[in-house]
Write a protein that binds this DNA or RNA. Structure first.
Lengths: 230, 230, 230, 230
DNA sequence: GATGAATGAGGCTTCATTCAT
DNA sequence: CATGAATGAAGCCTCATTCAT
């Protein structure tokens, strides 16, 4: 209550927590870069701490295993991606278009963000996964569309699995530098959902606006740091 | 001692090669079992040689790295699978049915052979892969069907990727003990190829005969040994 | 605010010293509990500061090493024990009875105070030691009794060593939950001092009143806290 | 069965086992030296392997922890000591003399073998222990003597504990370079067993022949190596 | 060829200690 | 004084690889 001299303990605590949070983020960012480059199995704690510029001991103040930091990194990435993809989808459009835009937005973000591409492709289904993203972005979305007669019946778990595993297969090709017909992939998924061949191709061909990550986003910052050294 | 064996060196050589081949197979079999249980990263050479009942040094007489023995094991498995799946497909049937039968045969073999299921699901796209299998079983098969108007246009690489990644996703669910609607998966793939929803569902529902591996096949022998200890 | 406190600096200093002393005691108490549980080698500074509820850095304001805090704790315990055992010994009794009472009082205190038992048994001869206690309680006591013809000649150092090492062996058995014939131990020590078998057994069998630690003693407080979590 | 060419496998196996046993002994010997110098807690695996002149990895081919090698070393030492002390005791002598000779032999061996002294004193009751030695050398020996009326009643466990803890206290004094009246200690133990003061002193004063370890004994070899570097 | 003991680089983990706030 | 984040030395342990028999 004393003006001009708030509880010094609180102050110290706040400072400490801020610093703590910052270090944690540095570790996650570093982990993303290392994972992107070496995959989960090629990554050891030493790589991460060196990339983060902290000491080995510091790592253990925040995580117990290399998997733990991957989990944390995944969560951070996912948070940003959900926002990003959500932005790119117009909720007034019919379900098929929303699926098409979401898938393409996801792939385009990866295509334009090499770090993210490597991370997602390499980590495969262990990484942030599209199906989870879809579930979080729009839970029950497919089911309702099926009930509404927009899609034909298919188990929701299956369509999520196919989208995720398919998207990762696409990213893997992109990472290897191969040409990929993204529209064909999107159209295929739409047919899985019951659309006719013609409709699937038409909707998959609609122009899509690729969402741009915010200037200060983890995605952009990490990509910048990472690209600098490649 | 052997009548009609003029050159003892030849004999010894032949005997030696037989023994050599047998040891190699033992190592591969052992590797499959260990990989099925622990995945690629959990597996170390010691596990394999102990399972095979040979000495550590012997391993290096046949392979250089743990990946090498995995490769060899993959090849052996694939050889058996190609035969198995080929058997189950009647080449007089229309392409859609052949795709449906092939996919289902593959999944059913895995469902009935726990060792193979674990191996394929765990190794994921690193394992023997379905798309490779498809390519080897019937190269150009999809393209011709497209040209013949049986399927609608789609890049051959893409459809292979989707089938492989989708099939592995299915196996992973099976391995986790989840219920999987295999027919729905097969129907989805048929729609990707351009069939109508009704046709896809109808063909996916056709009864399929699961091919049985030969008594002395690697698949069956290894599965028996492995199941004995689980 | 305090009436009759002319020099605020003195006041602050005094307050500070009080606080300082209290923190020091908290650390010692905590150390005793941790040592009792994990022994010297299993104990790390972190355990102690967490038990004491202070920060890691604070530890270094009071001690340099983990051994230092053990030393301090030992001193505190010993101070209390000397008083306790002294109370239980009637100085008008003959030397043999005083030895018997002292030994039994010591062992009974440990028997009734689980924390102290674990601490003493685990730390062994590194802990507060009985021979030191004896020396401090009654220096020269044995020598005089020998000169007075109450005991038979034996090097004072040796008898102290035997009592200490023997008592700790007894405590160790108690800690392991074994039955221990304390009277037999006491009688044995009396025979070492030259008493006849019959006399030793008779005196060791005399009823002894176990001294009770004061309500606010370190012994009782720490034991309470510690017992609460076991 | 073939003369002149016994099974080569057997031969190799035998060679291997011999080598294996030798390395194991080297590690134990090394461990004894290191423990003697630094105690259990000051000893780390690196010290032992360096002393043994083998690689770090080799250690793990034989033991899992530093405690394990201590156990093994204890067993080896004990085996030698049992023989040594047994030799020094004339089984025709009365029980009191046998106890006296055994105790003195043990202490004299330690006094003349610096390595063994340090090892026993430092490891304390964790080390090879006298009471175990006594139990193994002559199980039930004390009980029978009590029944025969040679000693007075005392729990066997207690007398063993007192002898062990007392002997170690004596060794500790010796290690610290203090003068120790070994005869007084032995006499004390005899009085514990019920002998009169005069008898105890008389028997403890009997001349004792110190047993000499065999030339190729672990005790002598290790002591030589160790003394060379002190 | 087969064997398995020995090796040592590489990664993991703990914990005493420092120091800015 | 108290705090706790950061540090890095020190020890632990695994495992691919070599090599004498």
């Amino acid at each position: 209550m004393t003006k001009g001299c708030p509880n010094p303990l609180d102050h110290r605590t706040r400072i400490g927590q801020t610093r703590r949070e910052k270090t944690r983020e540095r570790l996650c960012e570093a982990a993303i870069m290392v994972f992107a480059e070496r995959g989960l199995n090629g990554t050891v704690i030493d790589h991460v701490v060196r990339q983060a510029g902290v000491s080995r001991g510091t790592f253990y103040n925040y995580f117990d295993t290399i998997e733990d930091v991957l989990d944390a990194a995944r969560v951070m990435l996912k948070r940003e991606l959900v926002l990003l993809v959500k932005d790119s989808v117009d909720f007034d459009r019919p379900p098929a278009e929303r699926v098409a835009f979401g898938l393409r937005a996801f792939i385009e973000v990866a295509r334009q963000n090499k770090l993210f591409l490597e991370f997602s492709a390499r980590l495969g289904h262990q990484s942030y996964s599209f199906s989870n993203l879809l579930k979080e972005t729009a839970p029950g979305f497919v089911s309702s569309a099926i009930e509404a007669g927009e899609f034909r019946p298919i188990p929701e778990g299956l369509i999520f699995d196919l989208m995720e595993s398919g998207a990762i297969a696409v990213l893997r090709r992109l990472m290897d530098g191969e040409e990929v017909d993204v529209a064909a992939f999107v159209a295929a998924m739409l047919r899985v959902l019951g659309l006719s061949y013609e409709a699937s191709v038409a909707i998959a061909a609609l122009p899509v606006e690729v969402p741009q990550p915010a200037e200060d986003s983890l995605l952009l910052r990490a990509n910048a740091t990472w690209s600098a050294s490649h």
